[in-house]
Amino acid sequence: MKKIYDKGKTLTGLIIFVVLVSSPTWYNLVFGKGNYVPDLKVEKNGKECVKRTSYMKKNHMELLKVWRDEVVRTGNRTYVREDGEKFEISLSGTCLKCHTNKQEFCDRCHRYVGVTPYCFGCHNIPRETRK
């Protein structure tokens, strides 16, 4: 083994490096929430969702964007799915019929993955107490 110069400084630097790159491990161990997976509440009020769950999980924001543009730009409030099924384009009228609780559905997951969509900056959700 070769001689190591500046042992103290080197060791300090290396310890800082190891602590930084392993920070997710100890941070999650300290807070003990590493295994937490949000439980999303859905009430099945009638029909199935506009799109398949696997599509909605990844692309719900895309659908909402298309709907927003449709309503705002053309005033069309009817969405026709590929198979001919018709839906009213409305966040509170259609989406919130099943996903009744914003706090326990939208917010829970958005908070988990650190997303702050700007939709709710303007759109008030009924029955939600704003802080």
Binding site: P24, V37, V113
Partner: peptide, 25 residues
């Protein structure tokens, strides 16, 4: 090519807590 980000977070946390989880979506 969006992914289910909730699944990705579960995967990322699993890696660092030595409790590996294979993302499905």
């Amino acid at each position: 090519f969006r992914v289910d980000i909730m699944d990705v977070k579960r995967f990322a946390l699993g890696l660092f807590l030595f409790n590996p989880y294979i993302p499905h979506f």
